[in-house]
């Protein structure tokens, strides 16, 4: 049997289709339909036989879900495995393993991906860009875009290459030697510092309460500032975090703070 292999053309085509990973998100298959859609160019090339082609389509018409930026990595692995299976003459390769690897990868990758892309890069982009934008500086918007697009584009492109060229082995290695866990923890360290830095920059607690006392004026804001600047924003942020951890609905907290703002203004404290 002649060896069939994927060319640059099919691989590029699969890569670009990875961008539509959320093009048809459904409760039953989540990103499954777009994943199938992305695999089509590779499968068409590898299985000229009609029956084998249909079997391959069905194999990928299953539930799949992970962080979007890691979808190309998974697609790369699926392409490599399909290529291996299409050329297998020994009958040793069980096609069920293609789906099994997808399922095994999507959980851990979503865990890492959500903490990196939602929890770290987007957060840093927001921490850096939003305060600037809120002051009307367009640089804030540009920085926000770049800080999100650069890591995600690099992850997609190199993830796809890595996935196709032996990504399974690589992932198993960095997971086994503890590098992956350490990387995730370092991202959390960075995120904690950025979040801590956001507190004084974005949470404001304007206190206007003053009291005439005999000879002088008691200015509450000055007293609080004397203890520690930004004390109230810090305490409020920690309080909100604790409420969330206790399971209070975020929308209740938002309306609670809106109410508190009006009440404290009425009382002349804010």
């Amino acid at each position: 049997m002649e060896k069939v292999s994927l060319t640059k053309k099919e691989l590029n085509s699969v890569f670009w289709r990875s961008y539509q990973a959320l093009g048809c998100y459904s409760y039953d298959k989540q990103q499954g339909i777009p994943y199938l859609r992305a695999m089509v160019p590779a499968l068409e090339r590898l299985y000229p036989e009609h029956d084998e082609f249909i079997a391959a389509l069905k194999r990928h018409n299953t539930m799949f879900n992970t962080t979007c930026a890691f979808v190309p990595f998974c697609l790369g692995i699926s392409c490599a495995m399909e290529e291996e299976y299409a050329n297998d003459t020994t009958g040793q390769f069980n096609p069920d393993s293609i789906g099994a690897v997808k399922i095994a990868l999507m959980g851990p990758l979503a865990g890492i991906g959500d903490s990196f892309f939602w929890g770290t890069f987007r957060l840093i982009a927001c921490g850096v860009g939003a305060p600037l934008a809120a002051e009307g500086n367009i640089l804030g918007v540009i920085l926000y875009l770049l800080l999100n697009l650069i890591p995600s584009t690099l992850t997609r492109w190199y993830g796809f290459k890595l996935g196709y060229n032996g990504g399974r082995q690589f992932l198993a290695r960095i997971q086994a030697d503890g590098t992956l866990a350490k990387l995730t923890e370092s991202a959390k360290v960075l995120a904690m510092i950025v979040i801590g830095g956001m507190v004084p920059q974005i949470v404001k607690f304007p206190i206007s309460f003053t009291l005439e006392l005999g000879g002088g004026t008691f200015v509450l804001a000055d007293v609080l500032n004397g203890i520690m600047p930004n004390l109230l924003p810090l305490l409020l942020s920690i309080y909100v975090y604790r409420l969330i951890m206790k399971g209070t609905k975020v929308n209740y907290i938002i309306f609670g703070l809106l109410g508190a703002g009006i009440l404290l203004t009425l009382l002349g404290i804010m």
Binding site: G119, A191, M192, M198, I202, F205, Y241, L243, I244, I254
Partner: peptide, 26 residues
């Protein structure tokens, strides 16, 4: 007074964003 209150509230509301973000990494 309510408009002023809402304006003041919009100063403290970002604390909600901070609280949610801390869930991820804290």
């Amino acid at each position: 007074v309510v408009r002023d209150g809402l304006s003041n509230a919009s100063a403290i509301l970002p604390a909600v964003g901070i609280g949610i973000l801390m869930q991820y990494s804290f």
